[in-house]
Write a protein that binds this DNA or RNA. Structure first.
Lengths: 160, 160
DNA sequence: TTTGAAAAGGAATAGTC
DNA sequence: GACTATTCCTTTTCAAA
């Protein structure tokens, strides 16, 4: 995991569909070498998979909220119970006043209410507090340290 | 945006690298037709881009937390100030006791402290409350309604 | 590990229904 | 819209350094 690998990850996050030749050119390698590096990044599990990013509004899921769940719900099969609710994008066990935090995306507040009802039905749930999102500044993926501005390093000693 | 489009989106979320022929076979279309549908989904902006999913642990970002920001920080250039902090993956304006919610991923609690310090320096920020994640049940993308179990519908009237 | 190139496969396009 | 077929480009593989 050197600087070139980091650059490759950054480039692939921006566009996973570009040819290896382009990736190679961007980091100062041949297409074949870039291909080999990406193959190993996948093999090592650093790159989990390639996906698409779907526009939530266009997909009819314009209401975003975070739900804090109170109770002793962090034990047992709670994770699976939450996983079974498709509107829940993320679920975490947290420290602090609440025991669980869920990221919920619904079409409407009416649908959000349904989700809250389903969460309430999970064993051990004592209560919920919902934080509604009014506007999202941004949602981006994991940032990989300095993916850009490393080209000069990568090209150090390069002929011409 | 019919049922076949939804299935295609679901399939691409699972693996955006698979050939169009495979996509087509999965939904009961030819590769060319699947290709054309996906092209239009991109064109309409429903599919924003194709990316890779990076393992946070392997990338050295094992500490996840959610930071509630208090103050009148939802005005002006706050969004850009948060965007400039690479450890912040998401930032939302929220309703409720706090005015902002940020999702932060750091290598350590020490680094989290640095991020909190930087958030504090933003004009209008009066205080923060941090919710630390102990364990993540799951983090998945936007769920697209019934991507599976639609094959029978799609194949209705199909010869043999 | 990287390179360059050959071989295999898929994407993109066009024409037809 | 969807299908087939063709062309073109990319991925994949491999020998060599």
């Amino acid at each position: 995991m050197d600087d070139i690998d980091k650059m490759l990850i950054g480039l692939l996050q921006a566009d996973a569909g570009q040819p290896y030749a382009a990736l190679g050119a961007a980091v100062g390698l041949s297409g074949g070498a870039a291909h080999e590096r990406v193959r190993k990044l996948r093999e090592r599990g650093l790159i989990r998979r390639t996906t698409i990013e779907v526009d939530p509004i266009a997909a009819g899921r314009g209401v975003l909220s975070f739900v804090l769940v109170e109770g002793r719900a962090w034990m047992g099969a709670t994770g699976e119970a939450l996983l079974a609710i498709p509107e829940i994008e993320e679920a975490h066990v947290v420290a602090g006043p609440a025991s669980l935090l869920a990221k919920v995306r619904t079409a409407s507040t009416r649908e959000l209410q349904d989700v809250l009802r389903r969460i309430f039905e999970i064993e051990g749930v004592a209560g919920t507090r919902t934080i509604m999102v009014l506007e999202s500044f941004f949602e981006r993926g994991l940032h990989v340290p300095h993916p850009a501005n490393l080209l000069s390093d990568a090209l150090e000693g390069e002929p011409s």
